[in-house]
Design a protein around this nucleic acid. Sequence first.
DNA 1: TTGTAGGCGTTATCAA
DNA 2: TTGATAACGCCTACAA
Lengths: 331, 331
Amino acid sequence: MSHITLDDVAKVSGFSKSTVSRVLRNDPNVNPITKEKVEQVAQRLGYIPNIVARSLRSKKTTTIGVVIADICNPFFPSVVRGVEDVAREKGYSIILCNTDEKYEREKEALNTLIQKRVDGLLISPVQKKFDDLLELRRQKIPFVLIGRHFDPLEMDHIVTDDIRGAFMATEYLIKKGHKKILFINGPLYTSCARERMAGYKKALVENNIKLDTKLLKEGALKMEDGYRVIKKAISSKLDFTAVFAFSDLVAFGVIKALKEQGRKMPDDVAVVGYDNIDFGFSLELPLTTVHIPKYELGSEGMKLLHRKINEKINETQKIVLDTKLIIRDSA
Amino acid sequence: MSHITLDDVAKVSGFSKSTVSRVLRNDPNVNPITKEKVEQVAQRLGYIPNIVARSLRSKKTTTIGVVIADICNPFFPSVVRGVEDVAREKGYSIILCNTDEKYEREKEALNTLIQKRVDGLLISPVQKKFDDLLELRRQKIPFVLIGRHFDPLEMDHIVTDDIRGAFMATEYLIKKGHKKILFINGPLYTSCARERMAGYKKALVENNIKLDTKLLKEGALKMEDGYRVIKKAISSKLDFTAVFAFSDLVAFGVIKALKEQGRKMPDDVAVVGYDNIDFGFSLELPLTTVHIPKYELGSEGMKLLHRKINEKINETQKIVLDTKLIIRDSA
DNA sequence: TTGTAGGCGTTATCAA
DNA sequence: TTGATAACGCCTACAA
């Protein structure tokens, strides 16, 4: 309850509200001596600017919304950290929302964030629907998509080269002699799942391996999903010598299931993950995986958003970051 | 730029601003028919409440600040998730700030958060200084400390029973026959490091083992710290048969260094961590550790904060959650 | 149940 | 360089 307002500082210092406001905003159009005096009074009274009031008047909240699936998914902390570092540097705070990949939650989050008048948004969209994003656009609220994008819709985004990532992973397995590569993909409503599928197929085609749709699974997001798919695959006697998982998390489930079945890795079955999350290196079986620049996804995404907010850029900006194959012991 | 304001809805619907305001806040004192009409108009015009304006007037932002060391530290995502789940349920958003254990950063974060008039704060304090927290108290802004606390200062907090946690870990090692237990503790300016030290000593005393200060190291927070301490200990021919690390992260560094030295675990050296972070189970060497209820630290912390904000509780609330020893393969 | 008036604390605009 | 005045969009108090 700092009851001290700009008005109080004005009265005590003897200057007008406008002048005091200028001083406190570091407006250059103010006499240095005045500035000094006002600052001293403000200091002495313990004045604390009310950003809510400032926001109402200036229509800027210096706050941005960050909407992700789940901060507990080891993919996201680095992304969020990248965002926050750049945001802080530019004078923004971030409001964090988890959607758990549920469209309704995403919609609610965006609604709240719109009502709170954030200056912009960074979103890793669920992609089951996108009406909420169109609404954002209609409201002319700047936003940048992170890690996923909508093909036909022209929306600013920053993603990784997942076609190439999946291609590298698959080709690596093929070069190792594998022909029956079980691909446990993510939900196909996500752009990254579709692109990884494209990369997987491309590698097969270029190496003259016929696509076997029985080796294509989709919808995996968590460790349990990988575990379940493998258990089922084995009980139904599916024939495969390698697994390419949608994420390291899914790969962990795969490895767990495979181990329970007594399959040796990488000899009986080779496993490749995706994301290169922390500690993937110190696992029982150090994971071969595709590295995604998570921190940069966040930091560069925030930089783009900042430009979108402050410059009037009309063209859609699309940033694609490189992926990299990390070879360890699991394949 | 939804230019539609409450005023517009009032004019179009033919009612006054107050009535419209009542409708939109679900104030019971309004004729259902009126409510219906107003809601329809609001809907038709695409009215979006401006929470900034509401906050200025009502002095409530429905936003709380969450100040932690680093979301990339695997300890924090669950904590933050616990906070966010409860916050969302109660109608709050969370602004996330990382301090990297730097007091200046904590102070800046709190400053910004105060200026943004958050309704309350959840803080995992750096503890090198606490002037900023006293300022918070002076301003009568509700806040709850998470995971750390200040002994003499009466501040609301939620922590885990680290004396007991460290006691259990140490005693477990002793029962296994270890007498020379290297304790790589965290920075002693943190309450949890001091309490774990107390638990460590208590276990020694109760088992008639003389404390060897050469086996006491402090200040470790990251993986590198654990790695470095072990390297140095070995090069200086320090004699130890077990290591109790401040965190799983530190333990990872310990294990790495030990492995490089060709020491077998747990036979040559037993290692116990702390926190029970994800994937600690699937490491090359599944980690024996002390479990901390991270999610509950966040969710219960948020519940307490919510009570602090809405009820006028004067007594300091102190919550202590249980810790639990998780025995796996590293010790 | 509804309406009127005023103010929350700041910045924008215009004038001096 | 400084000041007066009017918003920003909403809610609170009080009156009708």
